[in-house]
């Protein structure tokens, strides 16, 4: 386990390092960093000072180490548009995205699990087939299109829910939350459903496959032979066994939910990290782009690492396979 962990950790570090190299090269080869980092209105004096500051007269590898050092100290430049440190900007937008992603995963579990359970237990019933066809749509429909339709129906036609922004927030522990106000919750509903749709289909399919497999197992047959009630067999014996893989996969999907939030946030004008990166790309706000890329890659690598470790702790079979 220890050896494996060291190997896995160094691999994660390698990925992050490789990513910084790619971003660095992208930043330096495809455009003069001075033009990139300096606002267009800068004077010649400011320009020279920046060149000296960035050390652009030094060899490339030294510049790269300076870039790495900046990342290490959390200094990734200042946003042109917002005129504040890029990293602070991302930190400020992070809670909104986290809130949205968590809400989406919660919806995916609350809807996907029961539906998958029913579909797995009664695979031939018409409602099971309907749900499975629905899940195909959930997989193939583009998120942004579904989001537009949600806005059209629920905000424009019916006027039930707001279609943009985050609504009222309260500050708790120095972070702004919208889940604690009525208005904030109302603003969260449509984006969260939109983001959850793909995951609902996924949880449904996973659960159905798991249930169909578990239902044939000896322990279920034995429980049935013992005369246990159907509810107890499903609720205790089957559910317990399929919950581990489902929850693991949902945990793994946390990262991709944050990534796909880019689309949802743009549609609903939701002020999270995803909208920030799209706006920054469109306004060529490079420091923010770089900071976002670095932050999201580190986040991803950490999530993948944690899931890997948890998986080995939870499922002894994986550990045995590693030894063989």
């Amino acid at each position: 386990m220890f050896l494996w962990l060291t190997k896995r950790l160094s691999q994660a570090a390698m990925v992050v390092l490789a990513m910084t190299v790619i971003v660095f090269i992208g930043l330096h080869l495809l455009g003069n960093p001075v033009d990139v980092l300096l606002s267009p209105e800068a004077t010649a004096l400011e320009r020279e000072r920046l060149i000296a500051d960035l050390g652009l007269d030094r060899p490339l590898w030294m510049q790269y180490f300076a870039f790495l050092q900046g990342i290490w100290h959390g200094n990734m430049g200042t946003s042109f548009v917002f005129n504040m440190p890029a990293l602070d900007l991302i930190k400020q937008r992070l809670p909104a995205t986290l809130e949205l992603a968590m809400a989406a995963l919660l919806i995916a579990l609350v809807i996907g699990l029961p539906c998958g359970l029913v579909a797995g237990l009664k695979p031939k019933a018409w409602y099971s087939r309907l749900m499975m066809s629905g899940s195909v749509l959930g997989f193939s429909l583009p998120t942004f299109w579904v989001g537009l339709m949600l806005i059209m129906v629920f905000s424009v036609r019916l006027g039930w829910l707001p279609s943009s922004g985050r609504g009222e927030t309260v500050t708790l522990l120095g972070v702004q939350w919208s889940i604690f106000t009525r208005d904030g919750l109302a603003h969260l509903v449509l984006p969260a459903i939109n983001l959850a749709l793909f995951k609902v289909s996924m949880v449904m399919r996973l659960t159905r496959a798991g249930v169909a497999e578990a239902a044939k197992m000896d322990y279920v047959r034995f429980a049935r032979a013992k005369g246990l009630s159907g509810r107890r067999i499903v609720g205790v014996h089957i559910l317990k066994n399929i919950l581990i893989p489902v929850v693991t996969v949902v945990g793994m999907e946390f990262g991709s939910t944050i990534a796909f939030a880019v689309v949802t946030e743009s549609i609903f004008a939701y002020p999270g990290m995803g909208k920030l990166i799209i706006d920054s790309i469109n306004q060529l706000d490079r420091p923010v782009i770089v900071a976002y890329l670095i932050v999201i890659v580190i986040m991803f690598v950490v999530i993948n690492l944690v899931v890997d470790v948890l998986y080995r702790l939870l499922d002894p079979r994986v550990r045995l396979e590693g030894k063989a």
């Binding site: 990925v15 790619i22 971003v23 992208g26 930043l27 495809l30 990262g255 991709s256 990534a259 796909f260 880019v262 689309v263 990166i277 790309i281 782009i289 976002y292 890329l293 999201i296 991803f300 993948n304």
Partner: peptide, 21 residues
């Protein structure tokens, strides 16, 4: 494996952010 561990939209976003539209 590395490629598949990152969601498609993120990889595409990175490439377009670095290389331009």
């Amino acid at each position: 494996d590395l490629q598949l561990s990152f969601p498609t939209i993120l990889v595409a976003l990175m490439i377009l952010a670095i290389m331009g539209k």
